[in-house]
Design a binder for these strands. Structure first.
Length: 824
RNA sequence: GCCGGAGUGGCGGAAUGGCAGACGCGAUGGACUCAAAAUCCAUUGAGGUAUAACCUCGUGUGGGUUCAACUCCCACCUUCGGCACCA
């Protein structure tokens, strides 16, 4: 093995002296390269290294291709684990966080990733969260922030509310506790105001973002077209509006269902007769106590209670029962549905259980539906029946016609509903950016004026971190008691802190201008660098961070903080790297003890070999199972490279092409083909690093055994090879570059260029098929005629014996690809 | 249940209509060595008594389109992700 430690230490030192990772002030050919910043958990494992290694490879390739790069890094430094550490170990959150950042940063620096550390950001520092609060105020001024009391998701263990995006299968994303419901007053951001744009603009990202992320976002947004119809409640002046995607089934309504926690329940309750009120109150109470998990596991058994009230179908005046049922979601549509048991499976099950009539209004083509015999709802299309003036209309046409009719009569309208909910951002925790709002008895909620930002977190020694179900900040009088910014009277600060997804929704903007004390970022800097040209990170952020940041970007764009020419999407291209699992396919975790630490690996085989192994393993978007044995190939490869090209050339002369012998010519041509292939595979729009490295290995395999510094082409070959290798194995490439006599840093040299003529293959072995079966191969020039190909095939007895004496019916000849002879 | 991805030697993978298995790991044999490690060379999809030549089969399964299919189309199986009473 070559002395990687010596080489890597040497260039670590030199590169840091040369500041090669600094961002140029005035980019001419700009490229904003970004990897998702990190949560400072303390250990950088091999999965992180994959993320950063992919980015670093791109950086080095682009740098050699003359790009001016912005390649920053930072820390998602707020969040719960810091507080938990405080509770468990008595370590203040800030201290714990900073310690972890320092460890993580040290590891990343040891790995030699090309970050410009002058632009490092830490979201827990006042000079950052001042601007997170500023972003909040901008959202507020744009009318996108509101406070609302509603049923929210509550994690009993973290003792805080959670956003929809932070619940995975009914459980808390952090601690796996089963999420409960609570009614609380919380801060929301109206992301739903932007929902259609967030959906439409996904089209702009088509082909540039991974398809699965786009699809996941589309599903998450969940646009449904349909109609909203007003059902008056009999004997009251309440209108019960409902949303449906099947207006064509409106005449099939036999009851109504309202969610127990629907807002409209409060209006309905007073009208419910006293003898029923208790039962209904009881039902609502138990329904709300059921967790999402309970509700979904018991999903086959739907239940509910009749309210004793009736709704009037505005189309035919028919009276139908109103039920409270917990299969209806309060937070979707109006929290109430029209139930059509004949044509909706859920309504069908409910109707069967409570003996509610089933009325068929859609008849399929081939069979005749009979309500008494139906075992499940018929949800497909068909002809509308029992539907008065719509009888005979095909259901898909009926949808539009029913809506049109309702609009004319003023009983309904076309309506689009989305699955996406508003963004709940308050957290009852200490370690986050305080929400810059003040509650004044006289003036109501008053935003903190911009010039008073940041609203600083109180000293940690004044705070008790033990969760009590309210923000720890609310027990700190110095923090809470404040003068109202408007009237100067006594007022109280809001004590919630912001969801960390607010911090991360705009961090890529702070990198543009991280030391600006007067602005979040200057427009002039935004103009230089935005948008992000390539954003690299894991797919787990598909419906969280990647939607929030698109949203915040659009708001700041609309407000004019992001210049027009930067566009209203943050990232042009997105790339998801695959996960690194252990050799059994398990996720690496401290508790399993299967974590591969890059630190240990680089001690053993060096940074370059670790990088090459990781990149060669599989294409970067695929998940990989890490195994020790695969690393050997990388070590062997680099050792071979070092022993081949680690010698000074005898001559630096570039020989004239005409002076080369045939075998030298073969070598030169192979070199140019390698430059072409490796260059294309390394490009950031391809990132086929595994095949690029294979190309380099293949090239080494064609070199003659005695290839060395005395060879006429040694200098040419070594020089080009080293530059092709540089993005993958930067340290050894730099060392060999120096040995070749370059005093210029390899990354400031140009990426090799190939000569089209030399890269061209002029003679190639192609397959010869007889009737589609491969029978042999011929060597043929790539521009030879079909006639020549046939002659060559005929002159080869191994091939010709298959068609000799038979009549040839057809010949297919594709230059440089195949010859197929079809006989009778 | 719905949406999306994936299925190729002993293993990771390559080929996106044109010689399936590039490249690497592992394995086997050989060279070097007192020996081992390292290194180098050769062989390595399965089968046909088979490392002369040759033939057959082979990319999850079954059909189809085509001169030609890992690649395109249809159905299914397995598997991994996402969503999941969204009306």
């Amino acid at each position: 093995m070559y002395d990687f430690a010596k080489i890597e230490q040497k260039w670590h030192r030199k590169w840091s002296e040369q500041n090669i990772y600094n961002t140029p002030d005035n980019p001419t050919k700009k490229f904003y390269l970004l990897e998702m910043y990190a949560y400072p958990s303390g250990d950088i494992h091999i999965g992180h290294f994959r993320n950063y290694g992919v980015g670093d490879t791109v950086w080095r390739y682009l740098r050699m291709n003359g790009y001016d790069l912005l390649h920053p890094f930072g820390w998602d430094a707020f969040g719960l684990p810091a507080e938990q550490a405080a509770i468990k170990h008595g370590l203040p959150p800030r201290e714990w966080t900073i310690k972890n950042i320092e460890t993580g940063k040290k590891t990343i620096q040891e790995l030699g990733i090309s970050y410009d550390w002058d632009r490092e950001i830490r979201t827990c520092e006042p000079d950052y969260y001042k601007w997170t609060q500023w972003v909040f105020l901008k959202l507020y001024q744009a009318g996108l922030v509101y406070r609302d009391t509603s049923t929210v998701n509550w994690c009993p263990s973290c003792k805080t509310v959670l956003a929809n995006e932070q619940i995975i299968g009914g459980k808390c994303w952090r601690c796996d506790s089963i999420v409960e419901k609570r009614e609380l007053e919380q801060w929301f951001i109206k992301i739903t105001d932007y929902v259609q744009r967030l959906l439409d603009d996904l089209d702009k990202l088509e082909g540039k973002w991974p398809q699965n992320i786009i699809t996941m976002q589309r599903n998450w947004i969940g646009r449904s077209e349909g109609g909203e119809f007003d059902f008056p409640i009999d004997g009251t002046d309440i209108i019960l509006p409902i949303f449906t995607t099947r207006p064509d089934t409106i005449y099939g309504v036999t009851f109504m269902s309202v969610a127990p926690d629907a807002k409209i329940m409060k209006k309905i309750l007073p009208y419910i007769s006293t003898d029923r009120q208790n039962a209904i109150g009881e039902y609502i109470k138990t329904a709300l106590n059921r967790t999402e998990i309970e509700r979904s596991t018991e999903s086959s058994e739907k239940d509910g209670v009749f309210t004793g009230l009736y709704a009037i179908n505005p189309f035919d005046g028919e009276k139908v029962q109103i039920w409270v049922a917990d299969y209806v979601l309060a937070s979707y549509g109006t929290g109430a549905v029209m139930a059509v048991p004949a044509h909706d499976q859920r309504d069908f099950e409910f109707a069967k259980k409570y003996n509610i009539p089933i009325k068929v209004v859609i008849q399929p083509k081939n069979t005749q539906l009979n309500p008494d015999e139906m075992t499940e709802a018929y949800t497909d299309t068909g002809i509308m029946v029992n539907s008065k003036l719509f009888d005979g209309t095909f259901s898909t046409d009926g949808i539009g016609k029913v809506i049109e009719y309702a609009s004319q009569k003023g009983i309904g309208r076309k309506k689009i509903t989305y699955r996406l909910r508003d963004w709940l951002i308050s957290r009852q925790r200490y370690w986050g950016a305080p929400i810059p709002m003040v509650h004044c008895d006289k003036c109501g909620t008053v935003p903190v004026p911009e010039e008073q930002l940041p609203v600083l977190l109180p000293q940690e020694d004044k705070v008790d971190f033990i969760p009590k179900g309210r923000s720890p900040l609310s027990d700190v009088p110095e923090f809470v008691d404040v003068k109202c910014p408007k009237c100067g009277g006594p007022a109280k600060r809001d004590t919630d802190t912001m969801d960390t997804f607010v911090c991360s929704s705009w961090y890529y903007l702070r990198y543009l201008d991280p030391h600006n004390e007067h602005q979040a970022f200057a427009q002039s800097e935004a103009k230089k660098w935005l948008p992000i040209d390539l954003y690299i990170g894991g797919a787990e952020h598909a419906t969280g961070h990647l939607i929030y940041s698109r949203f915040v970007h659009k708001v700041l764009f609309d407000l004019g903080y992001i210049p027009k020419e930067c566009g209203d999407e943050p990232a042009k291209r997105l790339f998801n790297h695959g996960m690194v699992l252990d050799e059994h396919g398990d996720v690496m975790s401290k508790s399993k003890g299967n974590v591969i630490s890059p630190g240990k690996l680089i001690e053993k085989i060096g940074i370059d070999a670790t990088r090459v192994a990781m990149l060669f393993f599989a294409p970067p978007e695929k998940e990989i199972l890490w195994s020790e044995s695969a690393v050997k190939g990388a070590v062997r490869f680099l050792t071979r490279v070092e022993s081949l090209f680690g010698k000074s050339p005898q001559s630096k002369e570039i020989p004239d092409v005409n002076s080369l012998t045939d075998s030298e010519m073969v070598m030169l041509k192979s070199l140019h083909r390698t430059i072409k292939r490796v260059g294309e595979d390394t490009r950031p729009d391809r990132m086929q690093f595994n095949t690029a490295i294979a190309g380099l290995m293949e090239f080494l395999n064609i070199l003659p055994q005695d290839f060395g510094p005395e060879h006429k082409l040694y200098y040419t070959v070594a020089d080009n090879f080293v530059r092709l290798l540089a993005p993958f194995a930067p340290f050894i490439a730099e060392e060999l570059n120096e040995k070749l006599g370059f005093d210029k840093n390899v990354f400031t040299r140009n990426y090799p260029k190939y000569n089209e003529n030399l890269a061209k293959i002029d003679e190639i072995e192609i397959g010869v098929q007889i009737n589609g079966k491969l029978r042999g191969t011929i060597n043929i020039s790539t521009d030879a005629s079909q006639q020549t190909a046939l002659e060559l095939a005929s002159s080869d007895s191994k091939i010709s014996k298959w068609f000799e004496g038979k009549a040839i019916r057809k010949v297919i000849y594709i230059e440089g690809k195949i010859l197929n002879i079809i006989t009778k």
